[in-house]
Design a binder for these strands. Structure first.
Length: 777
DNA sequence: TGGGGCCGGGG
DNA sequence: GTGTACGGCCCCA
């Protein structure tokens, strides 16, 4: 029978007592089908250069039980671009696993190749499958189990053109787990409340002192609804690990996976629920740099939702459970609701990323961007007959990065920002830079850079340039398809997500090459890319000076110049003709303010868009009140307001602080915990606060944000910092907030426009009660 | 007073 | 667990 199914995951499973491939798919009605492929053979390679076939066979026959079921083929494949002979061993997965173990012991790990790639991943790689895509399969029905149709794969007709998704049942889940004494402990603290939302109704589970019942009813409800997608926020790092331990402790393990398969923790800290796509939107929030604290509220706001409820801090769950349960439950229900709504927006990105990289949607967000890029490269490598290298042991060695010019301090008018289109990807393509083309000694057909002692082979096209060519072509193709489409249509949205993913992948390849943990790590390649980038900037700078175009700043792939249209056009032409690169005027600032520091400026375009870069306003480790003060001043400066007006604003903001009219929430300083607490050598305020929380029983994990307030008193700040929920407004150190928060950020932007330090000092000291009459200008 | 630890955001 | 460059705080010697 020919059938069209939407493919979304692959696992290993049983068929007639053997470990085979199961493809998890859904039909157009949303019904589950597992397609069993018993014919796929796992495989790996052994270096054949110094190994006799009969020697290999002898070892296999004596040490591997299933040796007779293994096939050995002599093959020629490329390794780092060079053709080489390998023996390919293939056969049933059980015996391949055994052979790998035995041969690693006999010949050493470094003789084996692709033995470190999981069976299921290999299936996707070798077959070139795209998850989240419709395929036409030829299948024979086998049997049905727990509402899932098992079918035997007898043929493949390839991808279907359909771009819409099957009707997917989605459940979003959130819950209250809390303890009187800090972090909840699954051996002691019950699950108090669970809410599940399916897009129409909420299902709530709440039984006083009976969390076993809550969990069992939740479990059977999920089982019964049998969703395709389960949404959580922090499911991977907290909810599922807690529920797994708690239900184990209670003696009734969760069975929400399909076919009764246990929910378990898998790759990269992902929690896997068999047959279902578990999406933890925290992973998505973590990847959005514009979110400062990576909370669900911030994510919702970013996606355009209004926050209609009063959020509750996780540290206060227990308090609200006891004292204002209604508010807490409202909040947790809202979380489930907004997760569901948020997913509607994120869905296209998730499915595109999954389909392009080949990572199933279940954990594509959990994989780091380096891993995502790597999967993509692995797919391409197999296409090009390259053997996939392993991660080798190597030490960290840094290399120089982009060139940053010193800015010209002050307020400028009409500044053009010239930047190079996809600078690093273009450099890689034009110069054939790839892990296998880069060399460290000169030779024929090699362009060698003596300054670096690095060269590039030019006689064969590199893997990375090929991949980039493909990414660029594919993105152009997708974008050309979009031109004639209705912007509101599903097809348009899907293609838009696809072109964005392709762009992100292209931009990731350089960073990937310089990543120590990469299979295709190339220190030389990454060094060469940044070196050529620096040459591009410095030669453009020289050319600009030559034609009399004044450059006031530049960073890595951009130059800021006075906007003299003819000269700018001349420079762009020179860049195109002499350097062979595309550069464009990205934007023109009507006003642009530079402090004397690099990477810190603010500007306004003719459209009235204000950009603030690097300054305190965009940093979360300054309190909101100071940041907001800076933003007000920046806007005034860019609007050419008078100094007096700016001084008035600053004075009144400081006065509000002195009068203690500023709410605590605007004085919180947020900093991230970036390592286990015991690894910190320094005494910093946020670390001191984190240690106090840890002593109270909270689990302080890497990635957490600590919000603190500075109280008045003696001694260093770290002794006066308290968690923001514990701060008494009357004890706030107003002087700290004036002299170490508001004044420095004001000074940063006012000093370049000529407001003296003395003036600022006098504003601060005179902004007390009733002293304003004495202030100077 | 200056160097080290640490953090966050830029391109 | 993609890269490096950079500024600026706080602490401590």
């Amino acid at each position: 029978m020919r059938r069209k199914y939407w493919f979304y995951d692959v696992s290993s499973g049983d068929y007639e007592g053997r470990e085979v491939i199961w493809l998890w798919t859904v039909d157009e009605e949303g019904a589950f089908h597992i397609i069993v492929d018993p014919n796929f053979k796992n495989y790996f390679y052994i270096d054949a250069e110094d190994l006799e076939l009969k020697d290999l066979k002898l070892n296999l026959a004596s040490d591997v039980l299933g040796a007779s079921l293994l096939e050995i083929r002599s093959v020629v494949k490329k390794f780092y671009g060079v053709e080489r002979r390998f023996y390919e061993l293939s056969g049933p997965n059980e015996h391949i696993k055994e052979a790998i173990q035995v041969l690693r012991r006999i010949y050493g790990e470094e003789m084996l190749f692709e033995d470190d790639i999981r069976f299921t991943n290999k299936y996707i790689l070798v077959k070139g499958l795209n998850p989240c895509t419709w395929y036409e399969f030829e299948v024979e029905p086998l049997y049905e189990r727990d509402g899932v149709a098992f079918e035997l794969l007898t043929g493949f007709h390839g991808e279907s053109r359909q771009m819409t998704y099957p009707p997917l049942k989605i459940l979003s889940i959130d819950m209250v787990i809390a303890s009187k004494y800090g972090a909840p402990d699954p051996k002691k603290d019950p699950v108090l409340y669970i809410v599940v939302y399916d897009g129409r109704e909420f299902r709530e589970f709440l039984y006083e002192d009976a969390d076993k019942r809550i969990l069992e009813e939740f479990d059977s409800m999920v089982d019964q609804l049998s969703p395709h997608i389960i949404l959580t926020f922090n499911g991977n790092s907290f909810i599922w690990p807690y529920l797994i331990e708690r239900t184990r402790y209670l003696g009734s393990p969760l069975t929400i996976g399909m076919l009764g398969i246990d929910i378990h923790q898998s790759l990269y800290g992902h929690t896997s629920i068999a047959g279902r796509i578990h999406v933890d939107l925290k992973e998505y929030a973590d990847d959005l740099p514009m979110l400062q604290r990576k909370t669900l509220e911030e994510l919702a706001t970013f996606l355009g939702f209004e926050i209609e409820i009063q959020p509750v801090d996780e540290l206060q769950y227990y308090y609200y459970w006891v004292n204002d349960r209604k508010r807490l439950i409202e909040y947790v229900k809202w979380r489930a609701y907004i997760l569901y709504r948020a997913f509607q927006i994120i869905r296209d990105q998730l499915f595109s990323l999954s389909s392009i990289t080949g990572i199933p949607p279940d954990y594509v967000f959990t994989a780091s961007s380096g891993r995502q890029a790597e999967y993509y490269i692995m797919r391409k490598a197999i296409e090009y007959n390259e053997v996939i290298p392993k991660v080798s042991q190597r030490g960290f060695r840094s290399y120089p990065g982009g060139l940053v010019l010193k800015p010209v301090k002050g307020l400028h008018k009409d500044i053009a920002v010239i930047d190079y289109k996809s600078m690093y990807p273009t450099i890689i393509m034009k110069n054939n830079i790839s892990p296998e083309t880069v060399v460290t000694s000169p030779g024929p057909n090699i362009i060698f850079y003596d300054e670096l002692s690095i060269g590039v082979k030019m006689d064969v096209k590199g893997l990375f340039p090929q991949i980039l060519d493909h990414l660029v072509e594919e993105r152009d193709r997708v974008r050309s398809l979009m031109v004639s489409m209705d912007r509101e249509s599903v097809e348009y949205r899907v293609l838009d997500a696809r072109q964005r993913v392709l762009k992100i992948l292209a931009n990731t390849l350089y960073g990937y090459m310089g990543w120590l943990g990469a299979r295709w790590y190339s220190w030389e390649g990454a060094s060469l890319v940044t070196y050529l980038g620096r040459r591009v900037i410095s030669s453009s700078l020289r050319k600009a000076e030559e034609i009399g175009l004044k450059v006031i700043y530049g960073d890595t792939d951009s130059l800021f110049t006075i906007y003299d249209k003819d000269k700018v056009d001349g420079l762009l032409k020179w860049i195109r003709e002499e350097l062979g690169l595309e550069a464009k005027v990205d934007k023109i600032y009507r006003r642009l303010l530079f402090t004397e520091a690099k990477k810190r400026y603010a500007g306004v375009t003719y459209d009235g868009v204000v950009d603030v870069v690097g300054l305190e306003y965009v940093r979360r480790d300054w309190c909101d009140y100071a940041r907001e003060t800076q933003y007000i001043l920046i806007k005034m400066i860019l609007e050419d307001a008078s100094k007096d007006k700016m001084i008035d604003v600053l004075r009144s903001r400081i006065r509000r602080l002195r009068k203690r009219e500023v709410p605590i929430s605007e004085l919180v300083i947020w900093e991230q915990i970036t390592r286990p607490l015991e690894e910190y050598k320094a005494n910093a305020p946020h670390i001191a606060v984190a240690r106090k929380l840890a002593a109270e029983g909270w689990r302080i994990k890497r990635g957490m944000f600590i919000g603190y307030i500075i109280l008045s008193g003696e001694g260093p700040l770290y002794k006066r910092a308290v968690h923001y929920l514990e701060a008494d407004p009357r004890e706030i150190d107003v002087e700290y907030y004036i002299y170490n928060q508001v004044l420095p950020v004001a000074k940063r932007v006012l000093e370049p426009v000529g407001v003296s330090e003395k003036t600022l000092e006098s504003i601060a000291s005179s902004s007390g009660f009733g002293l304003d009459a004495f202030t100077g200008g």
